[in-house]
Each structure stands twice: as structure tokens, then as C-alpha cells.
Amino acid sequence: MEIRLGKLTDVEGITDIFNYYIEHTNARFEESPFTLENRQNWFSQFSGNPKHQLYVAVANRKLLGFACSQPYRDISAFGDTVEVTVYLTSEAQGKGLGSKLYSQLFSCIFTHGVHRVLSGVALPNEASIVLHKHFGFREIGVFNEYAKKNGKYISSMWLEKELTVKSAL
């Protein structure tokens, strides 16, 4: 298995992973699948700012998952803060791949001056909460029933982590 920077050619596999979560879970709040063109536009955010990175895991030429850091808010006050996420194919879950992707992502973005990392986890999702806490994230709070998908309200736990030399590894 290889973990490397994401490339434009990975976008189709990334789109498939996103769409699985849109269609089968509440981890994504969208109700309609993403298009390839939509995700190609999304991919463009990773080319200009080294704080915004995308790493993919590939085995036997199949994309198994990805982790990325994206702008939290598009104003300069939040320039050193990113929102992170990790998604895996269903067959890659529970094998430590999310940890490997996050390890690579955090070590890279730390060297580019990221100070604070945020993540929102739609509930329930114990595996994601455990993963984030393993990396030193602390719970900030829960937004109760603040989103609605397919007629049902969804809550999310928000977590944060300060990146330091020790926590980036």
C-alpha cells in the first residue's frame, strides 16, 4: 500500500468514496451525489496553499481512502486553522489506514505552519471519534440537530487539536 499526495487522476475514486457516504450514511449532509466535475473543482483547492493538503492511500491501483486539510473559514484570521477529514472505502475500514493517512497529513501541514486543526463528526460515529481522540483531538461540543438530511435531524461533535511537534507525529 502507498500513501501519497492526491492527484487529479484520483478524483474519480474520491468521488466514489464521497458518494458512498452521501448515499448510505449521515457522515455527509448532501442528499444528492457529487459529480466528477464538482469534485474536480473541489480538488483545485489543494494546489495553491501548502496548508491544504490531500493524501490518498492506494493498493493494487485502487484508491482505498483519503485525508485532507481544507480552509476552515475563507478569511485571513483563520489562515493557520484548517478543517480535516478522512474517508475510507468500506473494505479499508478498521485496519489502521485512517491513522496512517492522518499521520502523513498532520506531519506535513505542521511543517507549513498550521496551528489549529478542527473536525466535525456527524453522530453517531464512534469509530471516527476514537480515531480523532487517538490523535489528541479534544471534544469542543455538540451541535444538536443542526442539520437535516432525508427528513431526519443530525447532530455533530466538533473536535480540535493544536498542532505541535509532538502532536504532529
Rank of each mutant, 00 (worst) to 15 (best):
T85E: 08
N49F: 06
F110D: 04
Q53L: 06
K100R: 11
P71Q: 14
G48Y: 10
Q104E: 10
S103C: 02
V117Y: 01
Y153C: 03
P50M: 09
L118P: 01
N38V: 07
E23P: 05
G136H: 03
I17R: 01
V114K: 05
Y20N: 03
N41V: 15
F46K: 12
E2N: 07
T89W: 05
L169W: 00
T89P: 08
L5M: 03
G98H: 00
L54M: 10
Q70R: 08
S76V: 15
S107F: 01
L5I: 05
V56M: 00
Q45I: 11
Y87G: 02
F143H: 11
Y102G: 01
R4C: 10
L101H: 00
R39K: 12
L97E: 03
L163E: 02
L97R: 02
F110P: 03
Q53C: 06
A59Q: 09
K95C: 05
E126A: 09
N144Q: 15
V130T: 08
F135V: 01
G136T: 10
E31R: 03
S155F: 10
Y20S: 06
V121E: 08
A67P: 01
G151I: 14
V82K: 02
I140S: 14
N38W: 01
E30I: 04
A122M: 12
E91G: 10
I17L: 06
W42N: 10
Q93G: 07
S167N: 09
A122N: 14
N26A: 07
A57K: 00
E139F: 02
F78W: 10
E126W: 04
Y55D: 03
K7L: 14
E126G: 04
K148M: 12
A168F: 00
G96Y: 02
I109K: 04
T9S: 12
V86S: 00
V165K: 08
Y153V: 03
K51V: 08
A127F: 06
S69Y: 12
E145G: 15
V84H: 04
S167I: 06
K95W: 01
E162P: 00
H52L: 13
F135G: 00
D80C: 14
W158I: 06
V11P: 07
L36N: 03
E31C: 08
N60R: 05
C108T: 14
S90E: 14
T89H: 04
D10C: 10
